[in-house]
Nucleic acid binder design. Structure first.
Length: 518
DNA sequence: AGCGCGTGTCTTCAGGAAAC
DNA sequence: GTTTCCTGAAGACACGCGCT
């Protein structure tokens, strides 16, 4: 556990004054702008009277692209012109403002109170990928409140995509850990969200459809709480909302999660080498410091990605063309073999034993037929001296009928170009012959030049060239249609970022879900 | 490695109309 | 007053590419 604690990153703890959270917003501050506003409140250790500067990559928690800069530009313009309004009750005797919310639920819209319109930021400077926020002087007294504030971890809202999700989390977070629910009138809700003047949202149905429901969905998906809604009617009109939420995972819970993770690793997953190793790698994330991290990531991404793609690809072949059932196959790269493959001590051969000749060559599956694919690691080769990765390959053109593409050469040129382009997701991709039209063997020489997967002699699959053609189609289609890479990369990156920020800890459920999703 | 600009894709928002 | 359906617009994100 000491090593886990060695993961040192800035704790992105949001500290928000309740007065600001619950203030009337004149216009909605949507998604990204809201997140930027909230993110500035993670710098509470600094003096808010001074400019707050941060890199957008730290805000996003990832690489920042051009479109992001445009988005931020828009959001900054909007934030600069945003203002919030405080309804401030005045103490009769002292003439000083009374803090709203100090002693419970003071209505936000009580009439007769002093109204104070305050712009949020004096100046916002967007300098390439750095952004600087300067708070309005009049907001400083509210920001520097010594009490009556709410804290939560920024990571809870970072991944939210809905327009009002971050705002709802912001609003509800105040009660988390203290209450089971939070009540708010529909009018107050509109006020806090800046939707009072919004014509459409005068209708509660609309408000619910476009604001409340998506926000709850967003929170349940991305944050550490589960939110549900109860509505209270007066007559036929819904007047009050009650948001129920479950509490945050506490430190003890995290400890327990770790224990249960280890238990899972040693029991259930121990029956499945691939899952066990995948899981094991994740556990390592919690143990290694940042310097070691890249290596771990590489080890995770490579086999998982390969397994994902190869597994899906091959299972498609069998399912669609040999009528196979998935249970019959052994598909995937065994992690414990990875180092041998990476060091060139062995190659990975994929071989197949068709159950029947008929099933193996037909376009449509034969009734009751199945294929049997095994990934075979040649044990003898493990004991041989490491091989040098070959620098050239001999390709034998094959004649594959594919009328829709005209000739085989064109088919493979088209597909392989796509394939090569898509495979750039992995890293450098190089067909040694530079001739795309000569695919007899499909050779992928990539993955940081460390791992190569050798589809040796596709004919040994015994399922015909039409299957090869189909397989490549499926492969390309898979990459394009389902974008296998994106979610995988994203999940792993998200996890990594979260871990680095010490925000989450994997538990049994998380892993079961992730692995199941894969 | 970081920056700036661009593209493609998916999801959500928001408005109208009509039914309940 | 509320809900449902439909649709175009907009938001948000991931990633490519060329440049420094």
């Amino acid at each position: 556990m000491d090593l886990i604690n060695n993961i040192t990153t800035r704790a992105e703890l949001v500290k928000r004054p309740n007065q600001i959270i619950e203030a009337n917003t004149q216009l909605p501050i949507p998604g990204l702008a809201q997140k930027l506003f909230i993110y500035t409140n993670t710098f509470h250790n600094e003096d808010y009277s001074k400019p707050i500067t941060f890199k957008l990559s730290s805000f996003y928690g990832r690489y920042v692209g051009g479109q992001n800069l445009k988005d931020v530009d828009k959001a900054c313009q909007l934030l600069k012109s945003s203002m919030i309004m405080f309804y401030t009750p005045i103490d009769k005797d002292s003439g000083l403002p009374v803090i709203i919310g100090k002693d419970g639920d003071v209505g936000l819209l009580n009439k007769g109170y002093r109204k104070e319109y305050v712009s949020i930021f004096d100046r916002i400077v967007l300098d390439k990928t750095k952004v600087t926020f300067e708070y309005s002087d009049n907001l400083l007294p509210y920001l520097n409140a010594k009490s009556n504030y709410t804290t939560y971890i920024y990571g809870n809202i970072r991944q939210m995509r809905s327009k009002y999700g971050p705002k709802l989390y912001d609003l509800l977070s105040r009660g988390i850990g203290f209450y089971e629910s939070r009540k708010i009138t529909v009018d107050d809700f509109r006020s806090v969200f800046g939707l009072e003047k919004h014509k459409t949202y005068q209708s509660y149905g609309r408000l619910k459809q476009s604001v409340i429901t998506p926000s709850i969905k967003d929170i349940n998906k991305n944050a550490d709480i589960e939110v549900s809604l109860k509505e209270y009617k007066k007559g036929r009109t819904i007047k009050v909302l009650e948001f129920f939420f479950s509490g945050k995972v506490d430190h003890q819970q995290r400890e327990n999660d770790f224990a249960s993770s280890m238990e899972l690793l040693n029991t259930e997953f121990s029956q499945d080498a691939t899952l066990k190793n995948t899981f094991d790698n994740f556990i390592h994330l919690y143990r290694l410091n940042n310097n070691c991290y890249k290596d771990v990531e590489a080890k995770i991404i490579d086999p998982v990605m390969n397994e994902k793609i190869l597994g899906k690809w091959l299972s498609e072949i069998i399912t669609e063309h040999a009528g196979g059932s998935r249970e019959k196959f052994i598909i995937g790269v065994q992690n414990n073999m990875l180092s041998y493959i990476m060091n060139g001590k062995t190659s990975l051969n994929i071989e197949a034993t068709p159950a029947t000749v008929e099933s193996s060559i037909k376009e449509t599956p034969a009734e009751g037929a199945f294929g049997n694919i095994e990934i075979v690691i040649n044990q003898d080769e493990l004991n041989q001296p490491a091989k040098q990765a070959p620098t050239s390959y001999k390709f034998e053109p094959v004649n594959i009928p594919c009328p829709e593409y005209g000739t085989d050469q064109e088919l493979f040129k088209a597909l392989s170009t796509k394939l090569a382009k898509k495979l750039n997701h992995f890293g450098t991709y190089d067909f040694s012959t530079k001739k795309f039209g000569e695919w007899h063997q499909v050779y992928l020489d990539e993955l940081n030049n460390q791992l190569f997967v050798f589809y040796k002699d596709m004919k040994s699959l015994g399922i015909g060239n039409s299957v090869i053609r189909k397989a490549i189609e499926v492969f390309v289609n898979d990459l394009e249609e389902y974008q296998v890479m994106k979610p995988l990369k994203k999940e792993i990156r998200d996890l990594r970022n979260a871990v680095q920020r010490n925000e989450i800890f994997p538990n049994k459920g998380t892993f079961a879900k992730m692995i199941n999703d894969w």
